[in-house]
Design a protein around this nucleic acid. Structure first.
Lengths: 203, 203
DNA sequence: TCAATAATTTCATGCCGTGCAATGTTTCTC
DNA sequence: GAGAAACATTGCACGGCATGAAATTATTGA
């Protein structure tokens, strides 16, 4: 990794860090791009070479698409052959982008904190989730040999993302849970989804 | 209805209409608030007395909360007592805001057209859906005597909204379907949801 | 070391969105 | 109907976001 690339990454991190810190400190309204740039020791114009908007710097590196490798296996019908089970595998792989779970956890906590303080950021976050959902729908459609804009696939993808949010919300704050537990929680959420709307069989 | 109120409503409609027309004609980027205001014969300053942002004028009157009356009956455990069935009733009541289904249909078509042309509007639309979803989650929680932020209720609400999108998407373009058909499609979508994730009973 | 390539900066610009004070317009009261 | 009170519209000024273009500086590779 050359010097140029390392510097760019450093600047990016510096801008993100300054944006988050200043926002939590003074509120987004009271933080100008100029201030963020100054804190990161670059010009205001440079800020916009890295981020399209002020909000972008805050939302940072939220996953935007399913993991490529896991997607391939899912589309091929693997790894187990059971739809719901394989879906969970794909979801977990797509969620855990960085190798480090602890970092991931910290990022999520930070994002939640930002959302509580600055609801204006919600639209952007929802849009990113929506993009992931679209990618997911595409994978599901492909696996089941349906057209890319298949409504049923989109429904399944949307429900799966709902389950993801549900599962994440149920993780205790500050717990040391790993991938296995996340996998379990996701399965549980999906099962619960089936129960809530499945025709009553015990009445 | 006094003259003052009628004039305000007229101005609002004029601004919305001008915004939509000009946007479809020239693209959102090339339409200034000044131009919209001029087309509606008011000052640019007045525009912001009606809408907080340019996008707001375009998204217009998308439903933002469940219908009050239907919500009350749902919370009380009615009208049928079967969760999935009552949920559909609530959803339909919340979706069909205006008495006129044809108008509603036209609005939806127009919104879809706007979304295709101007993806920048998506975040705002998603946020409105999200607000409805939150209201829905509250109603479900209340009906089942759970705390307002109950995770299971939020999961059910999210899944329900997924079904709504799915149902709406499946309505043929330009069809003359009414409330009954919408009701049926929604039930079908919810049932499909249960099937996709329910434990296999036939294998 | 020098040329090529890429990143940063400076400067200018247009538009958005808001606060404020002034001006019109509708409504209410007598 | 006249005048006061309430409300809506307008003009003006301002700060901030976001972008384009050209000049400057830093990195890379030969």
């Amino acid at each position: 990794m050359g010097l140029r690339e390392r510097k760019k990454l450093a600047t990016r991190r510096a801008l993100q860090g300054a944006a988050v810190r200043l926002t939590l400190e003074h509120g987004l309204e009271n933080v100008t791009v100029e201030a963020i740039s100054a804190a990161a020791d670059v010009s205001a114009r440079t800020f916009f070479n890295y981020f399209a908007t002020k909000e972008d710097a805050l939302l940072g590196d939220v996953p935007v698409a399913p993991d490529e490798e896991a997607r391939g296996e899912f589309v091929a019908g693997g790894p187990t052959g059971v739809f719901a089970e394989d879906l969970v595998v794909l979801l977990v792989a797509s969620l855990v982008t960085s190798g480090d779970l602890a970092t991931q956890r910290a990022d999520t906590a930070l994002r939640k904190q930002l959302m509580d303080r600055e609801p204006q950021l919600l639209p952007g976050l929802l849009t990113r989730f929506h993009n992931v959902e679209q990618g997911l729908a595409g994978a599901i459609a492909e696996r089941s040999d349906a057209p890319a804009d298949d409504a049923r696939s989109e429904l399944a993808a949307a429900a799966a993302m709902s389950a993801v949010r549900h599962a994440i919300k149920r993780v205790p704050y500050g717990s040391g849970e790993g991938i296995d537990e996340l996998h379990g929680r996701l399965s549980e959420s999906l099962r619960m989804l089936g129960e809530v709307f499945a025709p009553e069989t015990d009445a």
